[in-house]
Nucleic acid binder design. Structure first.
Length: 505
RNA sequence: GCUCCGGUGGUGUAGCCCGGAUAAGCAUACCGGCCUUUCGAGUCGGUGAUCGCGGGUUCGAAUCCCGCCCGGAGCACCA
């Protein structure tokens, strides 16, 4: 009884970890995650999606996944799928999936409504003139033409025989003198003739984010629209459009963008790395894409917990991977089996060693069973440890016995062999405890160790370290996607037979 | 340049809206003890922030007001 109550209370704390939403009604909250299908989802998307979902669940509301695909020049079919896959992996389950491009007819209807009521106008000025006028706060001649004239121009925009790209734009009548430059008659629609991945050539006039976003939020019943804070100046525009159209106003909430130290989520910076083959692809474990995080061995639950720990604050920050790693490590620790992996192996021969079957538990606390390794006095141990041992030193082979060093590694030569003598099984304080593989049974294994991708704003050529070594024979049975801890080395995910990726220490 | 938004220990975050409990909680990182399958986890303890700076209001300010400094964003036919 009593423990049950405690448990329930704990869970509640867990779920309510985000600050309360203003004007939120239990059961009525609707949030939305609106990615543009123009790239692979990364940890920044995860932050937004998880916050959106968490709020929806906190209030027993609904989450909408909306593809903001109103720029056919940028969207690609593959990315719709990549984003869905990323969310699946994260465990974000939208209650509704839709595309902005499905609502083109409504956008056109609202456009005409704004033109007719004199709140929008079709501008045929040259783009550089528009830019100039904006910076000087000047209105152009188009602005004062009659709504009828603008309706005609609008039709010529829609007509394939009419205006061409860049010849006309539908702009909102905002305030050309406003100190908030987002209000200086921004573009609502422009002509883009590229084929759309879902709609092909059906439309040639496409709404901008500024127009489509608020309308979609409003007509979809979104009560709380969250976005990153670079949109903050556009809040006024968002509400202006909805008020002009007489549509319901959602609450708008902004939070800071996620920037992880030592990497970048910028497509502009990532694309060249992939194009030039500096990284393996979008799932290269050095990248912050979701597919890369998965491949590196992060658990989706850890990613979720990590991004939630950052909260919805607008403060700029640059969290360290160590924060994510710590969460992941805690989750992985009770789940994964322990094995011995010897990086950069050096042979150790032990004189007078008995033949011993080492029985090693697969987990120090959990009942995961054990593996048995037959030993006959010949081992491999990590070079790094071997180099620290001097003649007369002792070490303990983990789970086996003690060894006294008789001949240490030659300092200058290759130093391939270390010789020692059996020194009993008793536990002695202060001995270095070292993992090993038997010289009679081991598998060659490679481990990829990732280091910061970006250093001083440039690609770090040393960002991937390839460590070769020997793993104990049992590791030959590991399957791709298995996660293990190589003792004294770190947590790893098996990528393919004989290849592991270090998730973190 | 103009406008807006930020600024709490190395890092992340809570507290700030509705000023008061020991002048700051938690996590991470770091250091040390315990634990002998670990340089992990767990556990115990420790170092570390005069809350960007300077004024003001107040009996009392991280919290309110003013000025300044620093950082970020916007000034797109991209979201």
């Amino acid at each position: 009884m009593f423990p049950d109550i405690l448990e329930v209370q704990e869970k509640r704390v867990e779920e309510r970890r985000l600050p309360a939403l203003s004007n939120a009604v239990e059961g009525k909250v609707v949030t939305r995650f609106p990615p543009e299908p123009n790239g692979y989802p990364h940890i920044g998307h995860a932050k937004a999606a998880v916050i959106d979902e968490t709020y929806a669940r906190m209030y027993n509301g609904r989450l909408i996944l909306r593809f903001d695909d109103t720029n056919p020049a940028k969207e690609q079919l593959d990315y719709y799928k990549a984003i869905k896959d990323g969310l699946d992996w994260l465990g974000v389950k939208p209650d509704l999936v839709k595309n902005s491009s499905d609502d083109m007819a409504r956008f056109y209807g609202y456009a005409e409504q704004m033109i007719s009521s004199g709140h929008a106008y079709a501008c045929t000025c040259q783009p550089d003139v528009v830019k100039q006028n904006r910076s000087e706060g000047k209105e152009c001649a188009c602005r004062s033409l009659s709504p009828d004239e603008h309706l005609q121009r609008w039709r010529r925009m829609l007509d394939a025989q009419g205006y061409k790209m860049n010849e006309a734009f539908l702009r909102v009548k905002g305030d050309m003198q406003s100190l908030n430059t987002a209000l200086r008659d921004p573009t609502l629609f422009r002509i883009i003739e590229a084929a759309h991945p879902l709609k092909d050539k059906k439309y040639r006039v496409w709404p901008t984010y500024d127009f489509a976003g608020p309308i979609e939020d409003s007509i979809d019943g979104v009560t709380h629209a969250l976005r990153t804070k670079e949109y903050e100046l556009r809040d006024a525009l968002y509400f202006l459009i909805l008020k002009t159209l007489g549509l319901r106003l959602p609450e708008l909430i902004e939070f800071s963008r996620l920037e992880l130290r030592g990497t970048t989520v910028s497509k502009r910076k990532l694309q060249p790395l992939i194009r030039d083959g500096l990284v393996e692809g979008w799932d290269d474990p050095r990248l912050p894409t979701l597919t890369a995080l998965r491949r590196r061995g992060f658990l989706p639950e850890a990613v979720r917990e990590f991004v939630l720990s950052l909260g919805v604050s607008k403060a700029e920050s640059e969290p360290d991977w160590a924060l994510l790693e710590s969460v992941n490590r805690k989750m992985l620790d009770p789940l994964v089996r322990r094995y011995f992996f010897v990086p950069d192996p050096v042979r150790l021969e032990v004189a007078g060693a008995p033949e011993v079957k080492a029985i090693l538990k697969l987990h120090p606390e959990k009942n995961f069973g054990e593996r048995v390794i037959e030993t006959r006095g010949a081992f491999y141990i990590p070079r790094e440890d071997a180099e620290k041992l001097k003649q007369g030193d002792s070490l303990r082979l983990l789970g086996l016995y003690n060894v006294e060093i008789e001949h240490s590694l030659p300092a200058s030569e290759e130093g391939l062999l270390l010789k020692g003598r059996y020194a009993g099984e008793d536990l002695r304080e202060g001995l270095p405890k070292i993992q090993w593989v038997s010289a009679d049974s081991y598998r060659e294994f490679t481990v990829w160790v990732t280091l910061p991708l970006i250093v001083d704003n440039e690609f770090n050529k040393e960002s991937l370290k390839i460590v070769k070594g020997f793993a104990e024979a049992a590791c030959g049975d590991l399957k791709p996607d298995d996660k293990v801890q190589f003792i004294r080395f770190g947590f790893c995910r098996i990528d393919s037979p004989g290849l592991a990726i270090l998730t973190h220490r």
